[in-house]
Computed example of a mutant assay.
Amino acid sequence: MTKPLERREKLRSDLILAAERMIADRGLAGLKTRDLAREIGCANGAVYNLVADVDELILRVGSRTLLRLDRALSAAESAREPSPQETLVRIALAYCDFAAENLELWRALFEHRMAADKPLPDWSIDDQLQLFRHVYQPLAALFPKRSREELGITARSLFSAVHGMVALGLEQKLVAVPLPALRKEIAGLVRAMIDGLIARAA
Rank of each mutant, 00 (worst) to 15 (best):
K3H: 09
K3M: 12
P4G: 06
P4C: 09
R7G: 03
R8F: 11
E9I: 00
E9D: 14
E9N: 13
K10Q: 15
K10A: 15
L11C: 07
D14L: 09
A18Q: 04
E20M: 08
R21G: 07
R21F: 03
M22H: 04
I23Y: 05
A24C: 05
D25T: 09
D25K: 13
D25Q: 15
L28Y: 09
L28P: 02
K32C: 05
T33E: 12
R34K: 13
R34Y: 08
G41C: 05
C42F: 10
A43L: 11
A46T: 13
A46P: 01
V47T: 12
N49C: 07
V51H: 02
A52Y: 08
D53F: 12
L59T: 01
L59D: 04
R60W: 08
V61H: 06
S63R: 11
R64C: 05
R64P: 02
R64F: 02
L69E: 04
L69C: 05
D70P: 08
R71E: 14
R71Y: 00
L73Y: 07
S74Y: 06
S74M: 11
A76P: 12
A79R: 15
R80C: 06
R80W: 00
E81C: 07
E81I: 00
P82T: 01
P84S: 08
Q85S: 13
E86V: 01
T87W: 03
L88D: 04
L88E: 02
V89H: 07
V89L: 07
R90D: 13
I91W: 05
A92C: 04
A94K: 00
Y95V: 00
D97W: 05
A99R: 00
A99V: 05
A99I: 01
A99M: 05
A100H: 08
N102G: 10
L105P: 07
W106F: 15
W106R: 00
E111N: 12
H112W: 14
R113Y: 03
M114T: 10
M114P: 02
A115R: 15
D117K: 02
D117P: 01
D117I: 02
K118E: 12
P119E: 06
L120I: 00
P121F: 09
D122S: 14
I125H: 08
D126C: 06
D127S: 15
Q128G: 15
Q128Y: 15
F132G: 04
R133N: 09
Y136H: 13
Y136S: 03
L139R: 10
L139P: 02
L139V: 09
A140H: 07
L142T: 06
P144Y: 08
R146K: 14
R148Q: 09
E149A: 14
E149N: 05
E149M: 13
E150H: 10
G152V: 10
I153E: 06
L158F: 01
F159E: 14
S160T: 11
G164Q: 06
M165H: 09
V166P: 02
A167M: 14
G169E: 10
L170D: 10
L170R: 06
E171I: 03
L174W: 10
L174N: 06
A176V: 00
V177I: 15
P178V: 11
R183C: 06
R183M: 03
K184P: 01
E185A: 14
E185R: 05
I186Y: 08
A187Y: 11
G188H: 14
L189F: 04
L189S: 08
V190T: 04
V190C: 06
M193A: 14
M193I: 15
G196I: 00
L197A: 10
I198E: 15
